[in-house]
Every structure is written in structure tokens, then in C-alpha cells.
């Protein structure tokens, strides 16, 4: 009886130990299936035009939320000045709005585009994501770098693509990932440092841009046609503009977000 009792006890311990000890390692890179070979009409550079524009804010810019980094001494050391979120990147004039993702939402037809050769990049530096908002192509490689001497995890929360959460405990670590479906926008967050967040727009064409601190953006080499262009902001929602572009034409468009009444669509 005692022998059997001891056996049962040992079995329990072995089970528990197995649960604690076993398990696989962490993937350091993840890739989806490569994008299909481009097929369809090619854009003629001789007739292509540009769309330029500006994003402005109507009303007083809300204050960005203050960040407390004292949970990680490395982050405190890297940021000696008070830190704030990058939600409202407003220009010196108080009107221009940066970090707005502008892209052609509709009207492109059946064009085919060369796949990008260079990878898109996001860096974790000074406990912030750089850039905060960016765009990339379906099937394009995304290079994720940790430049900080502390741990980060990059956690993507897409709705259409596969979710991933990759740890980067060592400074200089690089991982890559590709998205296989278009999606605007895919949020990124670091679960270690709750204030770190970024957004990427994944598209199947190259006509996207992010407004700079002066609120300016430019969509280059668009074939003639009528397009729906959308501007996306992480808090203020989206706005769309229709634009018709002739051959070799350059058009100016503008987006104005109302800070008092945001329209959240995402």
C-alpha cells in the first residue's frame, strides 16, 4: 500500500514537473506565405501623376497623455525629459496634424505592382516605437529591431491577419514578419511597457503616405483615374476625399479633422 502511495505521489510530482519544464522555445521570426506574383496592368510612368495634400486639425489640439516610465530604469535613463504619447502630432502652427495615414482606398482597378525589395522597419528605441505610424505592402518583410538594452515584446493585434507576440529580450535582436492580407490599420503594442504603441497600414499597392509634422503628405506615380483617398488617425478616426487625376497631373487635397467631435471607425 505504501509503495503504491509513493508511486502515486511520484507520478503526481513527475506530471507537475513535466508541465513546468516542458515546452518549446520561442520563435524569433515569423513569416506568412509570400504574396502571389503580380499579374495585371502596369502603371505607365509617362502618364502617372501625383496627389499632394495636407492634414489639419480644426480646433484646439488635445493634450497628449503623459507617460510614466519609472517601471523600467532603462527607459527612465533613456528619457530624461517628460514623455508624452504621440497621439496628436501637431505642428508649430497648432493646426498641422502629423501621424495621419493617407492611402488610396478605392479606384485603382486591376493594376499590378512590383514587390518592394527593401523591408519595412520598426525600431524599439528609447522605449518607443519608431515610426509610430507607417505603411507597408502585403508580402513585404517587416524588420523588427530592438535597439534598447532592455526587454521588449512586439505584439501585433490585427483583425484580418495572424496575431503574433514576439519577445526580444536582448539588445540588437531582429525579427521579421510578413502580413498576407491588406489591413488598415494593424496596431502594435509592447505588453512590457504599456505606453508603447504603433500602427501599420498593410496595403496591396504602393499609394500610401504618413503626414509629417507639418501635416504634409504625397502619393506619387498614380495612374490617371478617379480615386477615393482616405486619411486615418488613431483617435480622430477617418476621412475620405474623392479625387480625379489626369495624365501627368498633380492634385492637391486636404483633410481636416475636428478635435472636438472625433469619428472613430476603427
Amino acid at each position: 500500500m505504501r509503495l503504491r502511495n509513493a508511486r502515486v505521489g511520484l507520478l503526481g510530482m513527475a506530471l507537475a514537473t513535466a508541465v513546468v519544464a516542458c515546452g518549446g522555445g520561442q520563435e524569433t521570426s515569423s513569416t506568412s506565405a509570400p504574396a502571389a506574383a503580380p499579374s495585371g496592368e502596369r502603371v505607365d510612368p509617362a502618364t502617372a501623376g501625383d496627389v499632394k495634400g495636407m492634414v489639419t486639425l480644426d480646433g484646439a489640439a488635445p493634450k497628449n497623455e503623459a507617460i510614466k516610465m519609472n517601471a523600467d530604469p532603462v527607459c527612465v535613463k533613456a528619457n530624461s525629459t517628460p514623455q508624452f504619447q504621440e497621439t496628436y502630432e501637431v505642428g508649430t502652427d497648432g493646426k498641422a496634424l502629423g501621424n495621419v495615414f493617407v492611402y488610396v482606398k478605392d479606384g485603382l482597378g486591376n493594376y499590378a505592382y512590383d514587390p518592394p525589395t527593401a523591408p519595412a522597419k520598426i525600431d524599439q528605441q528609447n522605449c518607443r516605437y519608431h515610426p509610430h505610424v507607417f505603411g507597408m505592402r502585403v508580402g513585404q518583410s517587416l524588420e523588427i529591431l530592438n535597439s534598447d538594452p532592455t526587454l521588449h515584446n512586439i505584439h501585433a493585434l490585427p483583425k484580418g491577419n495572424s496575431e503574433f507576440n514576439t519577445g526580444q529580450p536582448i539588445q540588437g535582436m531582429k525579427t521579421t514578419h510578413t502580413f498576407d492580407k491588406k489591413e488598415v490599420m494593424v496596431p502594435f503594442k509592447c505588453d512590457v511597457h504599456g505606453w508603447m504603441n504603433a500602427y501599420v497600414g498593410v496595403l496591396d499597392h504602393p499609394y500610401y503616405a504618413v503626414s509629417d509634422k507639418e501635416g504634409k503628405f504625397e502619393l506619387k506615380s498614380l495612374p490617371p483615374g478617379t480615386y477615393t483617398v482616405e486619411a486615418w488617425h488613431e483617435k480622430l478616426g477617418t476621412q475620405t476625399v474623392s479625387v480625379t487625376l489626369g495624365a501627368k497631373e498633380t492634385k492637391d487635397i486636404s483633410f481636416t479633422f475636428k478635435s472636438a467631435a472625433p469619428t472613430v471607425t476603427n
Binding site: V19, G23, Q26, G167, P169, G194
Partner: peptide, 15 residues
Amino acid sequence: HDAGLSVPDWPTSYG
């Protein structure tokens, strides 16, 4: 703290 995924692997911790 919304820290459930701050260690992305299991049962290991960052390897």
C-alpha cells in the same frame, strides 16, 4: 496591468 502577454512564451520566459 494588462501584463498577461508581457512574457510572450510559456512555459519558458523569453527563452
